[in-house]
Design a protein around this nucleic acid. Structure first.
Lengths: 222, 222
DNA sequence: CTCGTTTAGATTTTCGAAAATCGAAGCTAT
DNA sequence: ATAGCTTCGATTTTCGAAAATCTAAACGAG
């Protein structure tokens, strides 16, 4: 599927988006080999841009590269997720405290909108849309112009766990839970209460990690 | 220069190394445009592997990409360096405290060797060799098997400032200073004194940042 | 003289095919 | 039967050239 035509982005960007979609959708599963020509054919492009996209994903940690052997979707264990979530805690607390005082009403409105989008997508069960809205929600309250490098690291951590977050959103219970957590977070943002915000973010994150650990230990045991 | 032949690595890796060298050596300066064909010709390869290498550097933050416009060597301001060094402080303290108890005599020997290599390179004025040895020194005491993701972020931060570190090493004074700082750090490692180690690392880092800030404000002022 | 348009050259981007490499099945000698 | 070697198909990797796009200079109208 997918008609090819020179849109605003380059073909490599198109390939990157296609690969991301496939990973989130579960068409490409952890551990699986990525057949370059197959991806290229599915997207109606040649292998060159696909390889460039794979390089990007490699740097993000979403695929692993073995020279002359190809690219493989990264498999994460519970211990990996724990480390990544601990790093997120460290970096996101920093970012949140820095950014919170700089948020104007406009920014808060955008965050609230993202929360609504997120809730709607959750109800529809549209995992991809929920992932996107969830990102807008969280990054909306962390982003600040003098923290670009911090944000780059945070974005990297999010990217490398995107497919596992998709796993999390497959549970209807957790989708509902997320809506509540977002309300509490948004409330803290509105009150400009940094400590409360950090506490809520930590709780939100911990919950996700706990659930994911359960899922991974349940069926992904080596 | 540079004879091409199918070595152990791929051509893309060869291109990546070539680009790194050129950046460290100052052949490619901050802000400058990267002409893909020129790079390819110099390395005796085609543009495809060069583009893949550039994608890697883009993710590392060493080059910036503007679609259909090309790749540009990233320009960092004093404020960028300050942020990056603050992040390093945060992450390296974590890594050092985790790794210190796990270092065996063998590991410490490797670190000491790296320190010697570093001092020798400093004396010779071989900046590239010093950068490499310096990296072995620092990463040798941070690396630990259950902190792979932390190390990935730290490596990223180091990569993105590699050319500026090269700038720092151009000063003979600072090369000498580094040797002393490394001695103090190594001493703390041998004593297994985590607090002292962190303090020395912080001091070492602060000094570098201070010097670099001076250099950048001096001549690179927009 | 200034602003917008056109054109030409340089550069990026993508493709399709050739070359190199890998992994597994099949073969042979012991 | 098995260990080691060989061959074959599948896949990655690289190349050279075509297509698309951008930058800057030349041009012309107001």
């Amino acid at each position: 599927m997918s008609t090819r035509q020179s849109g605003p982005g380059t073909t490599a960007q198109h390939a990157l988006e296609g690969l991301r979609r496939a990973i989130i959708a579960g068409d490409l599963r952890p551990g699986q080999r990525v057949r370059q020509e197959e991806i290229a054919d599915n997207l109606g492009v040649s292998v060159a841009p696909v390889r460039e996209a794979l390089r990007v994903l490699e740097q993000e940690g979403q695929v692993e590269y073995r020279p002359r052997r190809g690219y493989f979707i990264t498999e994460l264990w519970a211990s990996d997720l724990a480390e990544i979530y601990a790093l997120r805690q460290l970096l996101e607390e920093r970012a949140a405290r820095k950014a919170l005082p700089t948020l104007d009403d406009d920014a808060i409105e955008r965050i609230a909108l993202a929360a609504r989008d997120c809730a709607e997508a959750a109800e529809r069960g549209d995992v991809a849309a929920e992932l996107a809205a969830n990102r807008r929600f969280h990054f909306g309250m962390l982003e600040s112009p003098d923290q670009v490098h911090t944000m780059r690291l945070i974005r990297l951590l999010w990217d490398s766990t995107e497919s596992y977050r998709a796993l999390y959103y497959n549970s209807p219970e957790e989708r509902a839970e997320t809506v509540h957590a977002h309300d509490a977070i948004l409330e803290a943002v509105r009150r400009r209460d940094a400590d409360a915000l950090v506490a809520e973010l930590d709780a939100h994150r911990s919950r996700a990690l706990e659930v994911l650990t359960g899922i991974l230990d349940g069926d992904g045991e080596r």
